[in-house]
């Protein structure tokens, strides 16, 4: 009897988590597994998808330099976006944190407000400003005679990086902001009383302490940028494909679902490896300081 009771109590946690677990399996694991399986199926222009197990798609991705270039571009854009958000976002969060009461909440709202607006709308804003001859900024600058031809922005990597950085900025600012909240409010005064000037204080005292915040922000921004769809689709278009837009095209235009699935799977695996790896590195690096 007691054995039965014990068995029952061992089952309780499973029973309690079952609904969430089922949802997790149902909406995430099963589609994921199906996508992975799909990447091994065959596809032909006329025969459609054939549920066989072949490595054709994977071999194509591995050998055709087109895919290598496209993946390299994806990660290059993600890295540049991450660097840009870190370079602008960390000082932004620091300045924000030093503002007093009312201004602080106002500017925090200004920075986080965009999160409430759709990514598509925010990206289209950039297109309106810089899109070819009709872009507002281009028109203005050309009519002022500052530039002859429109600033190359649409369909360029620079354009994608700038627009992505704009979209991702709140995540970086929030992450650094959280790290700044953990700082001792007197820490700058302590450094100052020991004779440190403002530059030394930032470099030697503030930066090392907010670094974990910058790095975790970087991981978020990097993974979101590498898998971003809307912004590269609008700014980069067909001419400048990244992994996400390529997978989309394979699925919906070429209808080569297995190849699209292989691209999506590779992107996912690469991202998981990068994120888990860098996270482990960061945790080890800062283990003794931030427990």
């Amino acid at each position: 009897m007691s054995a039965a009771a014990e068995e029952g109590s061992a089952r309780t946690p499973w029973a309690l988590t079952a609904p969430a677990l089922m949802l997790f399996v149902g909406v995430l694991l099963i589609p994921l597994a199906m996508t992975v399986m799909l990447s091994f199926h065959d596809w032909g222009q006329y025969k459609g998808i054939e549920p066989v197990f072949i490595l054709k798609n994977w071999r194509e991705i591995a050998t055709d330099p087109y895919y290598a270039e496209m993946f390299w571009r994806t990660f290059r854009i993600a890295i540049l976006t991450t660097l840009l958000t870190a370079l602008l976002g960390a000082p932004e969060a620091y300045i924000l944190n030093r503002m007093s009461g009312r201004w602080k909440s106002f500017f925090l709202l200004v920075i986080l407000g965009p999160l409430l607006i759709s990514v598509v709308a925010r990206t289209l804003g950039w297109a309106l400003l810089f899109g070819g001859n009709n872009g507002l900024v281009n028109k203005l600058l050309m009519s002022l005679g500052v530039i002859r031809s429109p600033i190359p922005f649409m369909f360029t990597e620079t354009g994608v990086v700038v627009a992505l950085a704009h979209v991702m900025m709140p995540f970086m600012v929030l992450s650094v902001w959280a790290a700044l909240q953990r700082l001792d409010p007197q820490i700058e005064n302590a450094a100052m009383s020991l004779g440190a000037g403002p530059v030394t204080i930032i470099r030697r005292i503030i930066m090392p302490q907010i670094m974990p915040g910058v790095l975790s922000g970087a991981i978020i921004v990097f993974s979101l940028s590498a898998s971003a769809f809307a912004t590269p689709a609008i700014i980069g278009g067909r001419r400048l494909k990244v992994a996400a837009t390529l997978a989309y095209d394979e699925f919906l235009n070429t209808l080569n679902w297995p190849l699209g699935a292989a691209v999506a799977t590779l992107l996912l695996v690469a991202l998981v490896l990068i994120v888990v790896g860098s996270n482990a590195l960061i945790e080890r690096r800062y283990a003794e300081v931030f427990r």
């Binding site: 001792d184 007197q186 005064n189 009383s193 020991l194 004779g195 440190a196 000037g197």
Partner: peptide
Amino acid sequence: HPAKRGLGIVFQSYALFPHMTAAENVAFG
């Protein structure tokens, strides 16, 4: 300027530099 006053201050929260060892903290000044 406060940085030039040469006063020693111990704060209520200590305000030690958490990313430095005890020796590095003491050596900073």
